[in-house]
Simulated assay, not measured.
Amino acid sequence: MSTNSVLYDHPGPRARVRNAVLTVVFGVALAGLLWWVYAKFDEAGQWEGALWKPFTETATWTQFIWPGLRATLWAAAVGMVLSLTFGIVLAVGRLSERRWVSIPAGALVEFFRAVPLLIMIFFVFYGVPFLIQAPVTAFWAVVIGLTLYNGSVLAEAFRAGIRSLPGGQSEAAYAIGMRKSQVMQLILIPQAARAMLPVIVSQLVVLLKDTALGYIVAYPELLQRGVNDLAANKGNIVAAAIVAAAIYIVINSLLTALANWLDRRSQRRGIRAQRRVATGADRAAGTAGTAGTAGAIVGEPQG
């Protein structure tokens, strides 16, 4: 019996009819909502060609949208790398058997998850300079805020993934002489990352969108350059916001597609590895059986 048949019961005739009706109703409601939004914008003159004409000009993309998009992607890329690293460190710290490590790590996770990201960016930019007696750039204020918040959320994802793995894997690794750091690095964390990949990708998508909060410290990201600055020069804030939203949707869709591709690839590699292990075990069993048969023949008494 397949896993799908256990976890999911196929709907019967009445359920299929009900699902089809609900799908049609939802589709009609969604189409009506979109038409209502379009009509209201049309009444306000937001679809006039003069408001959308700047997006057909090269200067709009080179002076406003592309610089903002580049700053958004750069902050998101650095924030993703640091958040993943910070999350793994905190997850390992929370799983430590030493209380002087696990308790502070847990406190950091709970604290950074509780503080709003906007306040964190604001404090890093305006408050930290009083502590270190040096200014903090808008870029690093955004990146540090994204790292602290998203890293603490990812730490819980990694910890849940590690907790979900069978305990026998760790016991087997310790039995062959591996240290705990090796067990974490070579066995547990890679498997936890694969198991929690959907959660990790979802949080990275949130991180990418949260770069828009950099406007609080005047970081020139896509919202600041592609919406605020562009609208100030062209007077088309709704059109600029729609274009920026479309760009965010495309980028996040590509990120999700990449994650799905990596997930499928890791699953295929896992299946191939299991097949190799099964084939090796069958060959070993066959060899042992042949050797036993030969030994029995050699050991037979001569008549």
Rank of each mutant, 00 (worst) to 15 (best):
A172R: 14
V298G: 06
L146Y: 02
S181H: 15
G235V: 11
A294L: 04
A278C: 01
V37A: 15
G168M: 09
M120A: 06
F122R: 01
L73P: 07
Q203M: 10
D42S: 13
F55D: 04
P116M: 06
A296R: 07
M196V: 14
A246C: 11
A76F: 04
I65A: 07
T147H: 07
F122E: 03
M184A: 09
A71D: 07
D9C: 01
T56C: 10
A29V: 13
T72L: 04
R276Y: 04
A257E: 10
G68N: 03
M80D: 00
A294K: 03
A134Y: 06
L255Q: 10
Y126P: 08
A291I: 00
G226F: 11
L73W: 08
T147L: 03
L207W: 06
A291P: 00
V81R: 03
G106Y: 02
V115G: 00
A71F: 08
P104C: 11
R265W: 08
I297S: 00
G286R: 00
I65T: 05
P190R: 05
V238S: 13
G214R: 02
A239W: 00
N228T: 06
R272G: 08
V143A: 09
V21S: 04
I216M: 13
G214Y: 00
G214N: 02
S181V: 15
V136T: 09
T256S: 13
V81S: 01
E97P: 02
R16T: 13
Y126W: 12
N19V: 03
T62F: 02
I162R: 11
T56H: 12
A105G: 09
H10G: 04
K53Y: 12
T56K: 14
L82A: 09
A245L: 14
H10Y: 07
Q224E: 10
A246H: 07
V37R: 13
L69K: 01
S164F: 00
A134D: 09
A20D: 10
L146T: 07
F130Y: 06
G226R: 05
Y8D: 10
T85S: 03
R179F: 02
G32D: 15
S164E: 04
W66V: 15
Y248S: 11
T147C: 04
V6K: 14
A296C: 01
I187W: 11
A141M: 04
G127F: 12
Y126R: 02
V128R: 03
I132H: 01
L51N: 10
R269F: 07
T279S: 05
A59V: 14
Q185E: 05
R94Q: 14
A173K: 09
N236E: 06
L82K: 03
V201H: 01
P220A: 09
W35I: 07
A281K: 07
G68H: 05
E97F: 10
E156R: 10
